[in-house]
Design a protein around this nucleic acid. Sequence first.
DNA 1: CCCCTTTTGACCATAACTGACATTTTTCAT
DNA 2: ATGAAAAATGTCAGTTATGGTCAAAAGGGG
Lengths: 160, 160
Amino acid sequence: MYSLCDTIERYIMRLIENSPDQMVTIQRGKLASEFDCAPSQINYVLATRFSVFRGFIVESRRGGSGYVRIRKIPIDRIEPIVAYLEEYERQLKESDVEDLLSWLERENFITHREGQLMKAAMIKALEKVDDLGIPPGAERNQLRSRILKEMLLQILSWGK
Amino acid sequence: MYSLCDTIERYIMRLIENSPDQMVTIQRGKLASEFDCAPSQINYVLATRFSVFRGFIVESRRGGSGYVRIRKIPIDRIEPIVAYLEEYERQLKESDVEDLLSWLERENFITHREGQLMKAAMIKALEKVDDLGIPPGAERNQLRSRILKEMLLQILSWGK
DNA sequence: CCCCTTTTGACCATAACTGACATTTTTCAT
DNA sequence: ATGAAAAATGTCAGTTATGGTCAAAAGGGG
């Protein structure tokens, strides 16, 4: 017995598989009326079936000609990196960042320039933010970790 | 797929690209009737797609034989932008960042991937940091601005 | 029956688009 | 000269078209 949720999941999955670039762009409202359900149902499907943990990245835009774009990212690299992020979320030091970046660069996930940019965002930019109420220590490391996480997710979506 | 707004944007962009001096002069009313839309639609396109943050300057004159002139700002130097950031830290909105990135990308200061990385660090990563004691508003904008500044300085060191 | 998943609806946020009204500049009749 | 009419653009608030969030209701398998 398939739920509506499952049906929509398989529908989107099929669209992605039939696409040349592992990506599909839909309109939430349209899809909802095709399946005759509440628009937020689509969000539920996306949240539960197309999360980053399942190897998907979802982007969207509101307003006139808005859209929802779902992209598949290679799952083999997702797991170790997500695990890494969960483990180090609270204690990501500057040196950890440097180590990770050099690894990413060695493995050709990123270019040297991209590594330098990431370093600027995570290290230099966070050196003097006391005046913004972000003292050194755990809190700053967490912020660093959030920034790293989003950039890593971006990198994942590129493929190697 | 494309909104009217996008279509007009591409049209104007093409005019500029094809011009010898990176500049085009149009008449708002004429353009509006070509695209069969309200004249104020043109202002909307100009405001959202040809802003200073995207690297354009728009001048105009009213009255008989009035016109709208759109010019690309030449950037050989990023320093002025960094200076601007320091002054207007508190007001740097997300959309300003996006606009600036699209400019840097267009001018080949950064690649598309680099732009995406920067966006991840400055927008996605800062979307939900309330729990780190960084509420939306001025403070978050300032943090965003610091991150941008450091990344711009990095880009600056590369040259074009 | 209980708990987890699914489904819905009310309310929110944002992008695109329009129309009425304001402002500036030129033109032209007198 | 001059001043009203015409010719342009600007502004801004309101409308339409999307998508997002969250809590509550409904459903279904043990």
